[in-house]
Design a protein around this nucleic acid. Structure first.
Lengths: 347, 347
DNA sequence: GTGAAAGCGCTAACAT
DNA sequence: ATGTTAGCGCTTTCAC
């Protein structure tokens, strides 16, 4: 059906090797020859066959990314960073999104099949010992994004430090009775954010009431949902003592909490301050104080690392940690000079 | 380096053909034989090479999707629908996102290279005559998502009808002085939404003041940005006569407009009603009236169509049009029974 | 049900 | 600079 190098070799009066060279540009070809080849190709509508090239080269110029889900600003930004860097490098992107957590493993396996991609980016995927072992054994180029392991390249954020920063900020604002809205305990970043937060409290000798800690029981999205935050806040409000500050492990949860507070007739930040984590688009819009993660940059630099490892498989493992940056907005800054504005509206 | 069917054929004492059959499962293999093969494969850690399989089968079980950008709730949802359907069918997804509009063509070409994918989904990509011609000639399986062309399978939304619905709703609410916040004129859906809106006004004999029509001049995201909506609203407020309703061609623009209204001390919906288009997540959160598009479903059914066409290239072209569904929320429902709640907060 | 053998379309020594 | 040739690893007739 399709036209091959044989056809165009014949038409241009050269060998197939020359055609191949003319197209891959890896070996010099005399200019007049190249022109003949190219014009023959144009005449016949020839396009190199990628599958054949992949097999012969033993490389695909494709990398895979596996993410636990797609419906999340975080992953979209990470993927955007990845895609941008890849297209600069002439690579293509295979996206493996798991609909359910138990599917992550399957997607993972698929991405790693030989001949599929030259390397893989693993996003927010906790490394089991077994997976780590298999990966190490295969020698397959892999980099971890938003998770961390001694044996693999990675880029991640210092979640504990971020949690610390949230706590210190709230303490500095004079808050003392803290509520925590956490994701599913299976979420490693969630656990670390909590740990950091609690550490800072301990250092300040401020107690945290266990009745004011709410963990998501919902595995869906690991509990990172607006509804989850909303429900958690309502439960906290009705059950426990009254907090004067809420730290949510993610912005979406914080947004849900914000709504619950509003509905309960509480003012933010006057009655209750709220701090989230991520710095999604909407956070700037509603004026949510948060810890900003460099999502795009994480995708980009993770990709950079992967490209390096593909080029040089034996290079030493490199792990990069970004700091989350505290962005103070209206939901926590009691003394800010925007009294007239509805916090949900101020930029 | 890697283990091939030859290795496992030798170990299992069969021919390579049998190994191939055992793995592809397309031809029956005696049960004991299959067991021997599989255990040999396990021992040696064999995994079929995808590149070789692709070349031999002349098919990849991969489809590509080209989108103009990634940072958009719309595309994320569409892609999620695509990915879900594909993974059910055992296909993988190659994502081609263009950073800039002029790159769409390049991504498009790449996705279409022979041996790369078995078919392609084109999202929100206006069909030029030249592209259409090339595509038709190549016979490559393609389906259009969020755009439409007589010669190709497609799924799209009736944007004009949606615009109509917006206008009729606003008219029914007693509004008469309309402002329009539009994207870049290059956006085909934007043009159609406007057309529908104007048609409904004309049918109701209501005039539209040209001074109250704001088109984005920003090519970035085709003008579908919060900032764009914000700036447009401010400009409208300061320059033209005072409107009593705003129709924005997208929810993100509507959100920006909402903020500008707030800052200007105007109440919504009392002073100015606002209607958007898309029904992104935040719209439910802030109570924005909008036209809901079945984004996930569009991705899914577009993929369904593509899978069908791959299976049967000569089937008749099929075009599906979804209707946008009007979702009335607080920003337009003057007489709604939620007076106590801040519209930005009520669900 | 299984084996032999001829590709799939391109690349990369190696030779000239 | 160009041609020859042997793969790359798997699939798929066609016999048996």
């Amino acid at each position: 059906v399709s036209v091959t190098i044989y056809d165009i070799a014949e038409r241009a009066g050269v060998s197939i090797a020359t055609v191949s060279r003319a197209f891959s540009g890896r070996t010099p070809v005399a200019d007049p020859t190249r022109k003949r080849v190219m014009s023959a190709a144009r005449d016949l509508g020839y396009e190199p066959n990628v599958a054949a090239r992949n097999l012969a080269r033993q490389a695909t110029q494709v990398v895979g990314v596996v993410v636990p889900m797609l419906t999340s600003y975080f992953f979209m930004e990470v993927i955007r960073g990845i895609q941008d860097r890849l297209s600069e490098a002439g690579y293509d992107l295979l996206v493996y999104a798991a609909r359910t957590p138990d599917l992550v493993g399957r997607q993972f396996d698929r991405a790693l099949q030989p001949g599929r991609a030259d390397g893989v980016l693993l996003c927010s995927t906790p490394m089991t010992a077994e997976r780590a072992e298999r990966l190490r054994a295969s020698g397959y180029p892999v980099v971890l994004v938003d998770s961390d392991h001694a044996d693999f390249d990675s880029v991640s954020v210092d979640n504990a430090e971020g949690g610390c920063a949230a706590a210190r900020h709230l303490l500095a604002e004079g808050r003392r009775r803290f509520a925590l809205i956490l994701p599913h305990p299976e979420s490693v970043p969630g656990v670390e954010r909590r740990r950091g937060f609690e550490r800072a409290l301990a250092e300040a000798d401020v107690a945290l009431d266990p009745a004011l800690v709410s963990e998501s029981r919902d595995a869906e999205q690991h509990g990172y949902t607006r509804e989850g935050g909303y429900d958690a806040m309502r439960a906290l409000l009705s059950a426990g003592p009254m907090p004067d500050a809420v730290f949510a492990a993610s912005d979406v949860q914080a947004l849900g909490a914000l709504k619950a507070l509003r509905e309960a007739g509480l003012r933010c930040p006057e009655d209750v301050a709220v701090v989230g984590f991520d710095d999604i688009r909407t956070s700037a819009y509603v004026g949510l104080t948060t810890l900003s993660q460099p999502m795009y940059e994480m995708g980009r630099s993770g990709t950079e690392k992967l490209l390096c490892r593909i080029a040089e498989p034996s290079r030493p493992v490199s792990r990069t940690t970004f700091s989350a940056r505290l962005v103070v907005r209206e939901t926590s800054a009691a003394h800010t000079a925007t009294p007239a504005l509805d916090p949900l509206v101020a930029l």
